[in-house]
């Protein structure tokens, strides 16, 4: 009996506190993990908002770029500000690398779209 009591004493002394510690640790881990996930979600959300703002800004800049690079605008700038003139066709010869001159193929193949 004395032997059995000693065993019970060890169990109470080691395993019960250890179990409680594990339980508390487990609960704490879950809470900590969930809090961590929530923090990351906030961070992602903030970054997503920033990304969205940046994309919106990009769209505005893209539109502005398209306006500024219009043929009409370039010609107007070339004519009025830079004093450029259209070359006389008689003074220009086009050395063909391959094929015959043709309008560009109507395709975006090989071109990266400006859209995000």
């Amino acid at each position: 009996m004395t032997h059995a009591n000693r065993h019970n004493g060890i169990f109470s002394f080691i395993f019960i506190p250890l179990s409680i510690a594990f339980l508390l640790f487990g609960v704490f881990s879950v809470v900590w993990l969930r809090a961590g996930v929530r923090t990351v979600e906030y961070a992602i959300s903030t970054l997503e908002n920033k990304r969205k703002e940046a994309l919106n800004e990009k769209k505005m800049l893209m539109a502005e770029k398209a306006s500024l690079l219009s043929v009409q605008n370039i010609k107007s700038t070339g004519d009025k500000k830079l004093g450029l003139i259209f070359p006389d066709r008689v003074k220009v010869v086009y050395v063909k690398k391959k094929g015959t001159p043709a309008p560009y193929r109507a395709s975006l193949t090989g071109r990266r779209l400006t859209e995000p």
Binding site: F86, P87, R89, V90, K91, V92, V93, Y94, V95, K96, K97, P101, A102, P103
Partner: peptide
């Protein structure tokens, strides 16, 4: 037509040997 042919880099048909400027088409 005149401006479009220039824009499309279409050479004139009557200028062989009389050119001053050579432009390479890329």
């Amino acid at each position: 037509a005149n401006q479009s042919l220039s824009y499309l880099n279409v050479p004139r048909e009557d200028t062989d040997g009389e050119n001053i400027l050579v432009v390479e088409r890329r």
